[in-house]
Computed example of a mutant assay.
Amino acid sequence: MLIVLFVAVLWYGGLFFQSFFLHRYAAHQVFTMSKTMERITFVLTWIFQGPSYLSAYGYGVMHRMHHAYTDTENDPHSPSHDANLFAMMWRTKTIYQDINTQKIEVDQRFTKNVPQWKGFDLFASSRFSRLLWIAGYVLFFALFATAWWQWLLLPMTFLMAPIHGMIINWFGHIYGYVNFKMKNTSKNLFRFDFLMMGEGYHNNHHKHASSANFGVKWYEIDITYLIIKVLDAFGFIRLKRI
């Protein structure tokens, strides 16, 4: 079914660029890339995230704050300090926007070398851009939906990036198993992370934040890391050797 395929492409495409570009590159800089490749990846992130596009700068800074303040009152997103997942996501949205618009002062350690393309972000994050994507998605569904239940998937396409964040930042601190006992609630959601392309190994990541590979056990296959290895082999990026 074309609609299901479309949603799957948006899910895994948007998730990949969130994990590859926003998380592992912008926030943790586990690999390097040329300025040209960086700009290409900005555009690809916008294409696959569509109406839920996230700025590399806002995401990168906020995620560094999450690692520094995990499960404390200063954590931008924590089940330990928010009544429910909707309250957490709303607070996350507010902090993310305040970082992007410079309404709050941010410690320099959180902003150092975080990639930023102000002109493009201004467009990609604009109401015009988001509404254009939404209109395109609605038109696609109108042309190709063949059953009423397929329309239930439409709202998810508008909020794909926040949904990805919610799964990790809420459920990844409540459910799952632990490889490393730490002073936070991070957990691994799946033994084989088929759903979140490696992002679900959240406990492993909090233990080894500078590692490009979020998997630790033999069965913890990090799909995003495998793609990173291929991109490194072909010279598109340069993986840092740890």
Rank of each mutant, 00 (worst) to 15 (best):
M1C: 10
V7I: 15
A8D: 00
V9G: 14
Y12R: 02
Y12I: 03
F16W: 03
Q18T: 15
Q18F: 06
S19K: 00
F21W: 04
H23C: 09
H23P: 10
R24W: 04
A27V: 08
V30I: 12
F31T: 09
M33N: 14
M37L: 07
M37G: 08
E38S: 02
R39Q: 12
T41D: 03
F42A: 10
L44E: 04
T45Y: 00
T45S: 13
F48I: 11
L54F: 02
S55F: 00
A56E: 03
Y57R: 04
Y57Q: 02
Y57C: 03
G60I: 06
G60K: 01
M62Q: 13
H63I: 12
A68G: 02
D71M: 06
T72H: 12
T72G: 14
P76H: 07
H77S: 10
S78Q: 14
P79S: 09
H81Y: 14
D82P: 00
M88Q: 13
R91P: 03
T92S: 13
T92A: 10
T94V: 14
I95N: 01
Q97W: 02
D98W: 00
T101H: 09
I104L: 04
V106C: 08
V106Q: 07
Q108T: 14
R109D: 12
F110V: 07
V114L: 00
P115E: 11
P115Y: 01
Q116G: 05
W117L: 11
G119W: 02
G119H: 08
F120T: 11
F123S: 06
A124D: 03
S125M: 15
S125K: 11
S126M: 01
S126H: 01
S126W: 00
S126Q: 01
R127W: 11
R130T: 14
R130F: 02
L131D: 13
L132R: 10
I134F: 00
Y137P: 11
Y137I: 15
Y137F: 14
V138R: 02
F140K: 01
A145W: 01
T146M: 06
A147N: 15
W148Y: 08
W149R: 04
Q150Y: 05
W151K: 09
W151F: 13
W151Q: 10
L153W: 02
L154F: 09
P155I: 07
T157R: 04
L159Y: 10
P162E: 08
P162N: 11
I163D: 05
H164D: 10
M166G: 08
I168N: 10
W170R: 03
F171D: 11
I174P: 06
Y175N: 15
G176A: 04
G176F: 03
F180W: 08
K181I: 08
M182L: 15
N188S: 03
L189E: 03
F190T: 06
D193H: 05
L195F: 12
G198I: 07
E199N: 12
H206K: 04
H206T: 09
H206L: 05
H206R: 01
H208Y: 15
S211R: 14
N213R: 05
I221M: 06
T224E: 03
Y225I: 11
Y225V: 10
Y225L: 05
L226G: 13
D232L: 03
A233G: 09
A233H: 12
F234C: 15
G235M: 07
R238E: 12
L239F: 03
